[in-house]
Nucleic acid binder design. Structure first.
Length: 138
DNA sequence: GCCAACGTTGGC
DNA sequence: GCCAACGTTGGC
């Protein structure tokens, strides 16, 4: 059973272009318990949207989980977790936060309901709709 | 630059 | 255990 997620990154700190260049990237630095639980629930092969917060405020690409949760090497303590993400493909057309907010079908999307959550789930229906809007299929 | 949301800290 | 103060995130 494949699950779908959305992960946020400020492009100033780590952008989609860097994700593509690096191919596989350790997703570290999550310091929020709700987000950590989401990381823990990720299975190898799950897909995630790559969202640019602050600058762009749009979904720009798709990544997949290639390594399930393991202790975050950037945390000295606290039991924080990381996963490894691999770039899959960019969206042909970025899907902006403004568009998602203006569409009532997305009102219960975690991204909109909890704006500060950096790792959140995406329902299968939402996933399919956003892929269609982005002009991609996985 | 401001502010809302929300998590964390510390006094009691 | 409650809650005020404070810090951070992220949209506008």
């Amino acid at each position: 059973m494949t699950n779908y997620w959305l992960i946020k990154s400020e492009p100033d700190a780590f952008s989609w272009d860097q994700q593509v260049a690096n191919k596989v990237e350790p997703w570290t630095g999550v310091r929020n318990h709700t987000a950590k639980l989401n990381l823990k629930a990720m299975k190898k092969g799950d897909y995630a949207f790559f969202y640019h917060s602050n600058i762009g405020k749009e979904i720009v690409g798709i990544v997949k989980v290639v390594k399930e949760a393991y202790p975050d090497p950037t945390a000295e303590s606290g039991g924080w977790l990381a996963v490894d993400m691999q770039a899959v493909k960019p969206l042909k057309q970025a899907v902006t936060l403004a568009v998602l907010k203006s569409d009532t079908r997305f009102h219960d999307l975690a991204l909109l309901r909890q704006s500060r959550l950096s790792v959140g789930p995406v329902g299968a229906e939402h996933w399919a709709m956003i892929c269609e809007m982005g002009g991609v299929h996985v």
